[in-house]
Design a binder for these strands. Structure first.
Length: 590
RNA sequence: CGGGGUGUAGCGCAGUCCGGUCAGCGCACCUGCUUUGGGAGCAGGGGGUCGGGGGUUCAAAUCCCCCCACCCCGACCA
């Protein structure tokens, strides 16, 4: 490709609104332009990178037996009503109507569509297992897009779905996909690690996220260097050491003016935070099974109900909202308002599980609490607490389970060493969905005995756009991007420094032809510009190998080769061996 | 959705407090000449309903009201 004919634009100056280095470089090197919040257009050079990554993904998915499909982005509401997600998902799903007033939506994921497809096509166990995937646009109306391509609203995703006769077969394929993912990220020049994650709105049991560690990441990963345990902070477990046994003392109300926080309380009473109980008030939005029976018409539109949730943790621990939401089966969880808190008989800042209206409250207690003795809890009365509260003697919960968040320094759940917290970008994820969608959407197969069984499913995603951003975050220097050869938009940039000397420019053109002939992808900078402009653009765009054809070299019968990443320079003789020499260099760089 | 901020040429900005040659600067772009191995120089040139609408005024980029967009922090996040 001749640069003089290529639609591209580099920017000398930083672009104002971009804060992340990847965002800044993608804009400056002219790969993308922002169209609206969280919506980007790819220019030709950006599209080339995107295509290369997609092709790597395709190769690896095909290698484990994946079959590519293409599913629509605009989908009828009926499918989403079948799975229940039309009602469950909020405003992050973009909805529209067609000219006949039928409800449609823009797909934010494709479980419903692919399940319906399989329902229509798969009849027999002989057709299983089956792994389908696509590289397709998704739209999620994120509340707050940010960080350039890290978190966008319209994006390209490789999403894959596998279908199995039973859970064992899913497990086996899950591991195959896991390996394929490791290959994909490695080939893209990333060091993504797999961590245990929250299945979230996808439902299902086992789930992993592939995280590229980066300070620009939005997720926090807790990892144990001793035993290798790794998990997203949302679901990470930690070892909780129960305190020494004590005799249970009688309850005692105490005056504690102005101690609405645990810190204040511990200071006021001169006790460690581990001797206090923390109360948190949330409102959970849950599926309402009863509501569905009341009115068929209303049931379609309104099948959720709010429930007040009272959570109790030891004072030194923090609540994991994800764990709590999963424990109570909440679709959404939000902090309760002071009015809602008082309505159940509690008092903000002085909340206690004792004496509240239990008929309107779901009381969830962290599993460490029953092993704690004589805690100081609120009195549900401003400026008062109650001392010597003991679980079992004084109150019992609706649910006792792990709802505490692990953090930096928490004890590893498997070996007890200190966990370390890192930021990471989620570049991919894999879920065992089980039969959630196949049951909801009545998708089964006939087994050997002619018995109908629900299909067992897995699903597997890779965010292509944030993968690009992650690669740039990892592979750049002060001059610009340093693309790994595997994903570079071109392998070679050929810089013509003839300065109007026809002999030299003829040599450059000949070199270009030679390189093209051996199948190299070459960007030929034939622009009428000065050397500095060309070199700086080449560095900014990050093409792995730069060849410079100038009067100086041509006199000596060489072109100068520069490796972008290392800065290493070598003279390569002009002639038949040149193209092969360049190829050889390319195989040795990343 | 709460808090903060920004909208002036393709990009980056000044001008806004204090209405009146304020439609300006740098980069980019076009023409010509010179230059030519790390973002050249000179000369000339094109391009903007100053985010939108309403209002105040003899006069609004500038003051007032409403709306919109975008960014950052938080909430949220298959």
């Amino acid at each position: 490709m001749r640069l003089s004919e290529y639609l591209f634009q580099t920017h000398r100056e930083p672009q104002g609104e971009a804060e992340l280095i990847s965002h800044q470089l993608l804009l400056r090197a002219g790969l993308v332009r922002q169209v609206a919040s969280g919506i980007f257009a790819y220019l030709p050079i950006g599209q080339r990178v995107k295509r290369r990554i997609e092709d790597i993904v395709r190769e690896e998915m095909d290698a484990i037996g994946g079959q590519e499909v293409s599913l629509p982005v605009v989908q009828p509401a009926e499918l989403w009503r079948e799975s229940g997600r039309w009602q469950q998902i909020g405003s992050e799903m973009a909805r529209l109507k067609d000219r006949n007033d039928r409800d449609l939506c823009l797909a934010m994921t494709h479980e419903e569509l692919v399940t319906s497809l399989v329902r229509d096509v798969i009849r027999s166990y002989r057709q299983l297992p089956c792994l389908l995937y696509q590289v397709q646009t998704k739209f999620r109306d994120e509340p707050r897009p940010r960080g350039g391509l890290i978190r966008v609203r319209e994006f390209t995703m490789k999403d894959g779905y596998s279908f199995h006769a039973d859970a064992d077969d899913l497990d086996a394929w899950y591991d195959r996909v896991y390996e394929a993912y490791a290959n994909i990220f490695r080939r893209c020049g990333l060091d993504a690690v797999a961590v245990r994650s929250d299945p979230g709105m996808m439902g299902g049991s086992d789930a992993h996220e592939f995280m590229e560690l980066s300070p620009s990441g939005e997720d926090t990963i807790l990892s144990c260097e001793t035993c290798g345990y790794r998990a997203n902070r949302q679901v990470a477990r930690c070892r909780k050491t129960p305190p020494a046994r004590e005799d249970q003392l009688p309850l005692e109300e105490i005056h504690t003016p102005g101690t609405a926080t645990i810190d204040d309380l511990a200071r006021f009473m001169d006790i460690p935070k581990t001797k206090t109980a923390k109360a948190l008030f949330m409102v959970a939005t849950m599926a309402d099974e009863q509501g569905a029976a009341v009115d068929e018409q209303a049931a379609v539109e309104k099948t959720v109900v709010d429930r007040f949730v009272f959570a109790v943790l030891r004072g030194d621990m923090e609540l994991s909202e994800t764990k709590l939401a999963n424990a109570v089966g909440a679709l959404q969880l939000r902090p309760a308002t002071p009015e809602e808190i008082r309505a159940v008989g509690a008092e903000p800042g002085f909340g206690s599980p004792l004496g509240i209206d239990r008929s309107r409250t779901l009381l969830v207690v962290d599993d460490l609490i029953p092993s704690c003795f004589n805690l100081v809890a609120g009195a549900n009365r401003v400026d008062y607490h109650v001392a010597n509260v003991n679980y079992g003697r004084d109150y019992e919960a609706d649910l006792v389970t792990d709802i505490a968040a692990a953090g930096d320094g928490s004890a590893c759940p498997s070996c007890g060493s200190a966990l370390r917290a890192d930021q990471g970008i989620e570049v991919g994820n894999i879920f065992k969905l089980g039969d959630k969608y196949s049951k909801a959407m009545d998708t089964g197969y006939l087994d050997r005995e002619n018995v109908s069984r629900p299909i067992v499913m897995g699903c597997y995603g890779i965010g292509i756009d944030r993968l690009i951003a992650s690669i740039v975050e990892r592979h750049h220097d002060e001059h610009g991007i340093c693309w790994p050869v595997s994903v570079a938009p071109f392998q070679v940039i050929l810089v013509d420094l003839s300065g109007g000397d026809p002999h030299v420019s003829d040599v450059a053109a000949a070199v270009y032809d030679d390189l093209a002939e051996v199948g190299l992808e070459v960007l030929y900078d034939d622009r009428d510009d000065r050397a500095g402009v060309k070199f700086n653009d080449a560095d900014l765009m990050g093409i792995p190998v730069r060849l410079t054809v100038g009067g100086r070299g041509v006199k000596k019968g060489v072109v100068e080769l520069k490796v972008r990443r290392s800065g290493e320079m070598i003279d390569v003789p002009l002639g038949d061996g040149l193209a092969e020499a360049v190829k050889k260099v390319l195989t040795t760089c990343l």
